[in-house]
């Protein structure tokens, strides 16, 4: 396992993990706080999803080691994300593309 998992590396990692843990807690507080500030409906949704995405990146990237993962796994996940976006986007676009309706 020559990919940065030696004992010294692990010790460095642990500091990083604790930093991320704190960042995640702050993120949670921010999400809740942002929900109580009225920025307009769409902006509220966008902000909440943005914070959630940042948190998700921190968890996936560092706790799940995705920032230093192997090519095979990247390939699988990229395909998955593309198909997920396809499913979501096309379904919702189909909902809005109604003949004769002025959406």
């Amino acid at each position: 396992m020559g990919d940065g998992h030696s004992k010294e590396d692990i010790k460095k990692h642990i500091k990083l993990y604790i930093g991320i843990f704190i960042a995640l807690l702050i993120g949670t507080v921010l999400t809740v706080a942002a929900a109580y500030v009225d920025l307009g409906h769409k902006a509220n949704i966008a902000l909440a999803l943005f914070i959630a995405s940042v948190k998700a990146f921190l968890v996936a990237g560092f706790f799940m080691h995705l920032t230093t993962e192997k090519k095979t796994i990247y390939t699988i996940l990229v395909c998955t994300v593309i198909f997920f976006i396809g499913l979501m986007a096309l379904t919702i676009m189909a909902h809005y593309d109604v003949p004769g309706a002025g959406h």
């Binding site: 676009m93 189909a94 593309d97 109604v98």
Partner: peptide, 14 residues
């Protein structure tokens, strides 16, 4: 997949 659904009132773009 949605070529199974042309008759569901789907718009022309999609």
């Amino acid at each position: 997949w949605a070529h199974h659904m042309y008759l569901t009132g789907m718009g022309t773009k999609i």
